[in-house]
């Protein structure tokens, strides 16, 4: 009834208006996932105020291989998965895709999180991966409490207190009159000074160092070296506090600090990051020894892992392994003192 040309034209219109959408959408959403062979989870990333990760939680079975495809839809995000997996996809620019194929060996809870500053609420941008046991998929293993934090709680330490000189077994040493450090202690000078000092054995003990403040350490040194000026003792502690940090773990911690901490605490620990004015409490300045020398390493560790109540300090315990957290603590110590360049 039509001429052939009219028929071809109508067919073409049909193909364009119905066939083309069906082909494209069908391929992308039905055929393509089936072709890949392994389970594929598409996750879109946008700033938390626009929805954050979608989806922001999913379950996999231990031993199952899944492919995660992340895309960004508004601004650049970064994706890492922790703790302890060592998965960092790096930055994902809007409209780009990054994928990773993973097999989770053990049941447990993992977190995928944005590690590139993307919004005022950047730190809320996290998602949860439930890894279920193959045998008992309904039993979700409860995470063990962190032993360091448990010990602090048992000890009665207030993790949110701003000064920690008076806590701990050193209560015999009153530190209310802790001297003000006029200039930043120098680990380099401290290395020379320490060689001439009597160093109490406590300094060899990692556990002691982690549970005491540098100010307490200065006081302890003073009891053995009564005639040494306080500034020299501060230099010595600067050296003794930072000497055991492996340079490679500091090198790993540095970019982590830059990505996750610098926005508030400042690139060099000045407490002056570009977000500093917007947090509930002013971010502390690690570069200020008068602050950091009153802190205990294990409390810093706990603050990083648990976050700060009501301060806008987020928790990183679900993202970092304990070792990674200690490396970050070492990095914070290094911010408060002049580095020892002689052995680096």
């Amino acid at each position: 009834m039509f001429k052939r040309s009219e028929f071809i034209a109508r067919l073409t219109v049909g193909v364009i208006l119905i066939g083309l959408p069906a082909l494209i959408l069908g391929y992308q959403f039905i055929v393509r996932p089936q072709l890949s062979g392994i389970r594929t989870i598409d996750i879109s990333a946008s700033s938390p105020e626009n929805g954050g990760f979608q989806p922001n939680s999913f379950s996999v079975t231990a031993g199952e291989t899944v492919m995660l495809r992340f895309t960004s839809i508004d601004v650049t995000h970064g994706v890492a998965i922790g703790p302890g997996l060592g998965v960092d996809l790096g930055q994902i620019d809007p409209g780009h895709i990054k994928e990773v194929t993973l097999t989770f060996d053990e049941a447990g809870t993992y977190t995928f999180y944005c590690n590139t500053w993307c919004s005022v609420n950047h730190w809320r941008m996290r998602g949860v991966i439930d890894v279920r046991d193959r045998v008992n998929p309904n039993v979700i293993p409860t995470a063990l409490p962190d032993p360091v934090i448990a010990a602090l709680v048992a000890e009665g330490v207030d993790i949110d207190a701003s000064v920690h000189n008076r806590s701990s077994a050193m209560s015999s040493m009153p530190m209310d009159d802790a001297p003000v450090l006029v200039e930043r202690p120098s680990a380099e000078r401290g290395a020379t000074i320490a060689a001439a000092l009597t160093i109490p054995t406590e300094f060899q003990d990692d556990a002691w160092r982690q549970s005491h403040t540098p100010q307490q350490a200065i006081a302890l040194l003073l009891t053995q070296n009564p005639n040494t000026p306080q500034t020299d003792l501060a230099d010595a502690v600067a050296y003794l506090w930072t000497r055991s940090a492996a340079s490679e773990s500091l090198a790993r911690a540095a970019p982590y600090y830059a990505q996750n901490c610098a926005a508030c605490h400042g690139e060099t620990g000045g407490g002056d990051g570009f977000m500093a004015a917007q947090t509930a409490e002013t971010p502390v300045a690690f570069a200020d020894p008068n602050y950091l020398f009153t802190m205990r390493g294990d409390v810093l560790y706990a603050k990083i892992r648990r976050g700060g109540m009501g301060t806008d300090m987020p928790n990183f315990g679900t993202l970092l392994t304990p070792d990674e957290t200690w490396a970050l603590v070492d990095y914070l110590w290094s911010l408060s003192v002049e580095p020892n360049n002689s052995n680096r």
Partner: peptide
Amino acid sequence: LSSSDVVHGFYLDGYQINQRVEPGIT
């Protein structure tokens, strides 16, 4: 160069300069 909200880049016409800038890192 610094950024105060999200990742930006600095491209300068005619000078072949293209520098990515993450917030918090100058």
